[in-house]
Structure formats: structure tokens, C-alpha cells
Design a protein around this nucleic acid. Sequence first.
DNA 1: CGATCTATGACACTCTTTTGACACTTCTGC
DNA 2: GCAGAAGTGTCAAAAGAGTGTCATAGATCG
Lengths: 223, 223
Amino acid sequence: MTILIAEDDPLTLDALATCIESDGFTALRAPDGREAINLWRTEKPDLLCLDIMMPGVDGYEVCRRVRASDREIPILFLSAKSQEIDVVVGLDLGADDFIRKPFTRSEVMARIRAALRRSAAKDASDHFRLDDLTVRPRALLAERDGTTIELTPREVSMLRLLYQHRGEPVSRDAFLDACWGLDYFPDSRTLDQHIFLLRKKVEANPAQPRIILTVRAIGYRFG
Amino acid sequence: MTILIAEDDPLTLDALATCIESDGFTALRAPDGREAINLWRTEKPDLLCLDIMMPGVDGYEVCRRVRASDREIPILFLSAKSQEIDVVVGLDLGADDFIRKPFTRSEVMARIRAALRRSAAKDASDHFRLDDLTVRPRALLAERDGTTIELTPREVSMLRLLYQHRGEPVSRDAFLDACWGLDYFPDSRTLDQHIFLLRKKVEANPAQPRIILTVRAIGYRFG
DNA sequence: CGATCTATGACACTCTTTTGACACTTCTGC
DNA sequence: GCAGAAGTGTCAAAAGAGTGTCATAGATCG
């Protein structure tokens, strides 16, 4: 389990990291918001602890950007005792919990564990549903009334992305970023082709998609 | 995030810009009101800091002109300690906050962050209503009693413009500037055609529009 | 290798946007 | 009031952008 901590005060950052590591987790240290986003992209941590007030990109902004492509990862906010946490804004951004400074070691660890437990409970189901299709990421399989469909890792990640953003469109860029990588820029119909093949696999009627809907000029959408 | 600063005193301008840049934002420097308006048009900053007393076009005037086509962008006013800020006038013009000189670095940044946060929170609502029509810009959809209507990006930006200026007419030029671009000059019935098609889509009864009302010799209006 | 997965270019197709023609309405000066 | 001007609504068709589909070639991994 890897936990990312973003905190501009080096002393607090180190204290938190030590605390987390001594409990058997891996700690990623980010001295500012920009670095937090970089580390999140490259290291894929399991949980984020964000200080709200940071120079440059602040905690809210980090949260916003992360949530743009990952709705599941637990995010905790830290705040100095003097500043009131804007819980409304935080919750709006999809925060999972708030920790006020000064905090005790046990309090922090308790909240981190709680958040991980909640997220594990979500993941533990180990499958998600898109319309009448059940996707089992671990097994690289999908099922529809008894019939099983084999999927490739990339196809699973495309379906997962659609599921995580159900109800809103996922841009073509978001697909490429999330399923191919940030440094990949195909110069042809790669994404369309994958959508095409995926539809043939998972749609009951590929000509009238119910799972992968096209949003012209944007990308694709489920639900 | 880009922040425009308009300030006629070069020392203060530079101090502010440095301060903002060292916090990770991009600063645009405008030595007077005219330049501020130009930069706002070309660079589309996320927030404006306007000195009130400036030679030529003053801060109030800049605010007035910007608000004529953008009601959302956060605008902060700066003022010298000797001059009393006319808060009433400022608020009337749609100012978001006032900062009195001399100001500390942390005060300025705190107020800027607060304003940005508020504006982000507004955007996060992610939908707006025009009469009985609910528009969801991100999804490129509108809804009226259960029926969903698909929209193009341009149609969404036209509806958004009408919403932002609800209660007052939006000139044809403002439409072209906001939805097409400042350098676009169609030589035909482009705008009318788009209005025509948009009415067919979003009006319950296109022959008697309730959302897109014509204001002859000016443009169109909602509410 | 050999099977599977992925990438690419060509082409067809659909939807959006622009344009010109014309009808209709409202305004203006007489 | 009336004629002409200016402004807007409507339609059809062309131009442009964005996607879907297919055939095929390359990459990857056991």
C-alpha cells in the first residue's frame, strides 16, 4: 500500500511520512501540489493526504485534477488549526475525510486505515456493472446472461474508465491518458479502432451501442 | 491558472506579479486599463486584480467592460490607503473582493485563492437552468421533463452566454466573440442559422420562443 | 514460430457548420 | 400611410470535421 503525502512544511511532511512508514505503508513525499500530481501519475498511490494550503497548486486543486481521472482513490485533507476547512468545497471535490492540525499519530493512522478500508470494501466486490454487462477486471472477463467475454487489459481499463465516469463523457484525450499513457500521441485511428473492437465484443448490438455511447467532438460516455 | 494585474505604479505591479508567480500562477502585467482589457481579451486569464486609480481607463471601467461579456470571472480591486474604496460602486459592478494598500503578500494570495475557490465551486455545479430547460455543459446535454436533447459544443456555449447575461440582451457581436472567436467575421447568416437550429432543438415551441428571445437591432436575450 | 493484441491508412459515412437565396417583419424619412 | 432600408427567419445545398469500418501490417509474448 502506497500513500502520497503533499505538505509544504518539511517538518510536518517528514513526521507524517515516518509515521506512515512505521506502520508498514510506503510513503511518497510531495513538497507541493505540482509534485503531488506528478507522483500520483507515475506512482499510482492507493491514498492521498493533501495539505490544503500549499504554494502554487493547492490541495483543492490537486484533488480536482486527480478526481478528473480517478473517482475512486481515497483523498484526505489536512489543514492548519488556524484555518477553517471549507468542508463544503472539499466534499464537493470528492474528499473522503478531513484531518485538522495538530493531529496525533494515532488519529492520522486511524483515519487513513478507515479510508483504505472503505475503498477496499468498494474494490472488494471486484467487479462492476455496465448496463447488463458484468466486468471482472482481475479475471479479464465480462459476462452477459451466462455468456463470458474475454477481454484484454487495455479493454478492461477502457471499460473501467467509462464506469468511473458514468453519466458524463470521457474525452478522447482522457482515454489516451488513462489507457495508453500521458506520453502517447497516436497519429491515426487507434482509439476509434479500439472502441470499434470493444463494441463488437461487449455490445449486445454493436450498431446501437448501450454501453459505449459516442459524444461527438468530445469522446465517449456510459450511462 | 493565469492572473491579470492592472496597476499603474511599476513597483507595485512588479511586486504583485512576482508574488503571484512565486506561488505557481502565471501573471499578466498591465500598466493601464487599456492594456488590461487587451490582455483580458487575448489571454483569457482566470482572475483580475485591478487598481482602481489608473490614468485613462480606470479599474471601475475595466470591470464594467469585462463584466459586459463575462459575469463569472473573479475580479479583485486594489486601492491606495489614502483613497476610500467605493465598495458600493464596486459591488454594483460585480467585484468579488477589495484589497487595501499596503497589503501583505499572504493577504493578497489568500484573497486570490479564496476568490478562485469560490469561482471553482460555482463551476462545479455543472449545470444551469433556462426556463424549464436544464443544461449540462460537460455532458453536452439539455433536459426538459425527462427528455434529453443532445447539443454541440457551440450550442452549449451559446446557451451559456445567454444564461450568464440572463435578463439583458446579448449583442450579435458578443455572440460571435464569445462562441466563435474574436477574429471571426462571418459574411452570411451564420448566427441566425445557429439560432434557428438551436430554437428548433431547445424551444418547446420554436415559433414562440421562451428561451431565445429576439431583441431587434441588438441580438438575443433570455429572461 | 504462431497466436494474440495493437497500430495505421484508406475510405465511407454522418453530423455540424457555413453559405446564398429568398420571404417576412419592423423601422425610417417622407 | 408608403416606399425603401435594415434586420431577421427559413430553407436547401455545399463544405468541413469527426467517427466508423475494414484490410493489413507491426509488435509482443509465450
